[in-house]
Structure formats: structure tokens, C-alpha cells
């Protein structure tokens, strides 16, 4: 069970952070934001190494095309596991599962991959709104609802 997902822009500003649980609790929200924010360290490091790898492999264009958007498990803490996904436009998607709850600790990699792909699709739908300004926070209620659904059911 994912406890939180986040969409982060290419300039590393948060576009959307959604989580299950008591949203009004500030401490909960704060720890969630810390978690996602610090996950960016691992994400950026992963991207940097990916880039050098692809640069090393003699600008093999087909290889860069096939680059997997899903980055897998970024890192895990005692309480959470954090997965990352980066779109071709450098939008970063982060999914956090709880390693203490049984459904979260036994989650399979493929499930996370599917969930993040789904989130990517939802994100793409949301920004197709012509009145949405790229780089702004996503305020779409529909997106929010769908993401909450994704958090609860899918994974």
C-alpha cells in the first residue's frame, strides 16, 4: 500500500503531493514532504549516473530511447520505501510505501512500476488542460481523486 505519491517538476518544485491518512495533521504532512524532498537527492544522483552511463556508451541513441523511465527503489528507511520514476521531460514521480504495514512491505516491484506508469498517464491527462500552466501546482480535483484512488486500490 502506497502511503504517498508526489509529482515533482523539472526544477524540483513540488507540483503535487498526495497521501492517504489524516491530511489535516501538519506533522504527518511535514514528515511526508521531508520524505519526498530528501528522495530527490537519490533521484538526482540516479539521473546523474544514468546520464554519464548513456554518454559513455558512445551516444547510442537507441539505448537512450529505450531508457526505462522507472528507476526502481531509490532507498528505504526503517519505516518507508521510496520508488522513483522520471519522465522524458524530467518530471519526477515518487511513490512511498510503508515498510511497516504488511501490504506495503510485501509489495512487488512490478506493481510499483504499474502504479507509477498509471500516475504518469494521469499526470499527462491533467496537464493536457489548456488552462494549466506548466510548472504550476496541479490543482485538478479530478487528478487528486484519481491519485487517491490509485493509492487505495491499485497498489
Amino acid at each position: 500500500m502506497a502511503v504517498c505519491v508526489a509529482v515533482i517538476g523539472k526544477d524540483n518544485s513540488p507540483l503535487y503531493i498526495g497521501g492517504v491518512g489524516n491530511d489535516t495533521n501538519t506533522d504527518n504532512e511535514l514528515s511526508r514532504q521531508w520524505l519526498v524532498h530528501t528522495a530527490l537527492d537519490a533521484l538526482e544522483e540516479r539521473l546523474a549516473t544514468n546520464n554519464t552511463n548513456t554518454a559513455n556508451s558512445a551516444s547510442n541513441s537507441s539505448r537512450t530511447d529505450l531508457r526505462d523511465l522507472y528507476l526502481g527503489l531509490l532507498y528505504s528507511t526503517d519505516t518507508h520505501k521510496i520508488y522513483g520514476y522520471v519522465t522524458n521531460t524530467r518530471i519526477k514521480l515518487v511513490l512511498v510505501t510503508s515498510s511497516t504495514s504488511p501490504s506495503g512491505s510485501n509489495i512487488r516491484d512490478a506493481e510499483v512500476r504499474t502504479a507509477l506508469r498509471r500516475l504518469h498517464a494521469l499526470y499527462a491527462d491533467a496537464i493536457c488542460n489548456p488552462f494549466h500552466l506548466p510548472g504550476d501546482q496541479i490543482t485538478s480535483l479530478k487528478f487528486d481523486k484519481q491519485v487517491k484512488n490509485l493509492l487505495l486500490n491499485n497498489v
Binding site: 526544477d11 518544485s13 513540488p14 503531493i17 511535514l30 514532504q33 521531508w34
Partner: peptide, 10 residues
């Protein structure tokens, strides 16, 4: 700078 306003507020 990174526009994490919630954390910035904190």
C-alpha cells in the same frame, strides 16, 4: 528557491 512552500513555511 525550489518552491517547497510547505517546508519553507515550517
Amino acid at each position: 528557491r525550489e518552491k517547497w512552500w510547505f517546508l519553507a513555511s515550517h
